[in-house]
Nucleic acid binder design. Structure first.
Lengths: 330, 330
DNA sequence: CCAGTGGTTGCAAACGATTTCAAACATTTC
DNA sequence: GAAATGTTTGAAATCGTTTGCAACCACTGG
């Protein structure tokens, strides 16, 4: 039961070569073929593998990326995480996830990224504190905002074409001849929430209609359901509701079901994100598709670009969204 | 635009002290109060923070844990990841996620954990390859299997009380007076799938009943729905179905809806996991609660125990599951 | 035979921190 | 005032790897 991990020195001694030779056997460099195979064989019996900590130290780069993420209350978040982890693995990097749930303070995760000398930090939750962001910019750590916000200077961002999505939803409702459209947003307004509303409102205004506005009463499904029920029990009940997220839309559909409203005849509903559940038989939700794969691809591109040319001006990418028409609209 | 990150030496020079002093200011150690504040202040203006790579090197520990995970097709997986990340953060460790989607080969992720000198590797997907597992045991890297399998020697595991869950489901069906119970499992049988079936089958057998067995035709929701529809269209259609996961149960409920079967009168359904969606109005699924928080807590305990006493015999923990009765059973 | 060439090798200096050790200093006790 | 004790301090060794450099080797061509 030998606890100590074998090091490059052990392998060198055992194989009767210098440490440089061992290093070159693993990381490449001129080395005769027979010596290389012998070294690898010895390394195998000793269970030796180079320590990435020591490598990062001397190479001055870690090939790791930190993702700062909050509560993943939306299935979209886990899809995103999975796709991101995979894309990073393909580019030979590891993903470190730093949860930021503690009162939505991201700085902890950001500072962890700094300590780890990550290649970049990707932020997918909450609001970026200004001082942490400044620190990143000063030390040249690329910061990429994902899907949510872009209110801090010097950082890159990829976000959905939220306004356009709102406009598409409004257009769809108008085509369907709706009379009393409404907006159903999240409890605490966020960047994307507000943009989606803005687009929806603008398009409706262009048709001379002022949509009503409602909000979910809380974070959990029950609170959402309650708020949706209240909205649909009013005398001037809306006949078309655009929801900030699919999750809200599910609540609306369930409330409609409980109130025996026929969808889409009495009530049309549109969501946002196109999470897998939206396609289920129970919902068949018309929604705006926000393609995760595309988001991740853009992030990877930004990452490479930034790493290649650190001085670049902030990059902002809008991901187009497209309306997936299912059975909750007419 | 100074690209080079400042090091402990820069701070020492700037503050007019030795590097030891700076180290002590950050990591603790005897140091006069005024000197400490001065150092921290200088470090602040220089944006200095200790490099964790260098720290791990000299301290011989990384305070990181690697999670090897596959496709997160079940919401349960993302809940698990989130809870785990948080628990680890609380214990001052970071979470590295290594995706193992490529033809379900885990060894890549496991070797990454080895390279990273992680404190432990947690495996939540697929089957552990024997050689990778052996390597971990030899070098003393703790391996913890989560929720799925325990067929490899020398590794710890925490799994649901799957058999017991199956028995509870069977008992519930029997109490409700079902006549033709059935099992609905995943396409490619897995450890937990099989255990759940075994428990269900045993309890039914004790009552002199042999349940029918069906399988989902594929991984995606559509394939599950098709298989469920076929199952419910048979002349000897089951009147009670126990599903290996909630996700399968949703498919069954939707198929039942499409066939105009009344739940729970014509058909009772029980799932497994109690994912958040199971509580939704659209499903109100009776299911076995597999408490994520508990799973994570056990993992953390095992982790600490293993780190404190590496020579320990393999630890196996069963997490009790409890039946949550909603509206899909009578 | 000798200079030139090109591929292998190993030494030793980094990389950025911590920590042991002994010296220096300050404080208490007799 | 001296000895004993305790607290700060910095020099230097260390962690495990990579890599620039120079030495060495075996050839090749003149």
């Amino acid at each position: 039961m030998n606890r100590r991990r074998s090091t490059i020195k052990d392998v060198a001694r055992e194989a009767g070569v210098s440490v440089s030779a061992v290093s070159r056997a693993f990381s490449g460099g001129s080395l005769s073929a027979d010596k290389k195979t012998r070294i690898l064989q010895v390394a195998g019996t000793l269970d030796y593998r180079p320590s990435s900590a020591a490598q990062s130290l001397v190479r001055q780069q870690t090939r790791s990326v930190t993702l700062v993420t909050g509560r993943m209350h939306d299935p979209f978040d886990s899809q995103f995480l999975e796709a991101l982890a995979e894309a990073l693995a393909d580019s030979g990097r590891r993903l470190i996830v730093a949860p930021a749930s503690k009162q939505a303070d991201l700085s902890g995760g950001v500072y962890q990224a700094i300590d780890d000398r990550s290649d970049a930090v990707i932020i997918a939750a909450g609001t970026m504190p200004l001082d942490a962001s400044r620190a990143c910019v000063r030390i040249g750590l690329p910061v990429i905002l994902a899907g949510r916000i872009l209110d801090t200077p010097g950082v890159d961002a990829v976000v959905a074409a939220n306004c356009d999505g709102g406009r598409q939803a409004a257009a769809m409702f108008l085509r369907g001849g709706c009379q009393r459209p409404a907006w159903f947003g999240v409890e605490r307004p966020s960047f994307s929430n507000d943009e989606r509303l803005a687009g929806f409102h603008a398009q409706m205004a262009a048709a001379g209609i002022e949509p009503a506005r409602f909000e979910a009463g809380g974070r959990d499904d029950e609170a959402i359901f309650e708020a949706a029920s209240r909205m649909l029990s009013r005398s001037d009940r809306p006949d078309a509701v655009f929801c900030a997220t699919d999750r809200l839309a599910f609540g609306v559909l369930e409330a409609a079901g409980a109130l025996r409203l026929a969808v889409p005849r009495d009530l049309a509903v549109i969501g946002f994100n196109n999470v897998p559940a939206a396609a289920r038989r129970s919902y068949r939700l018309t929604t705006l598709d926000y393609p995760v794969a595309r988001v991740v691809a853009e992030i990877m591109e930004i990452l490479e670009a930034r790493l290649a040319a650190p001085g670049l001006a902030p990059i902002r990418r809008r991901i187009p969204v497209s309306l997936i028409v299912r059975e909750t609209t007419r």
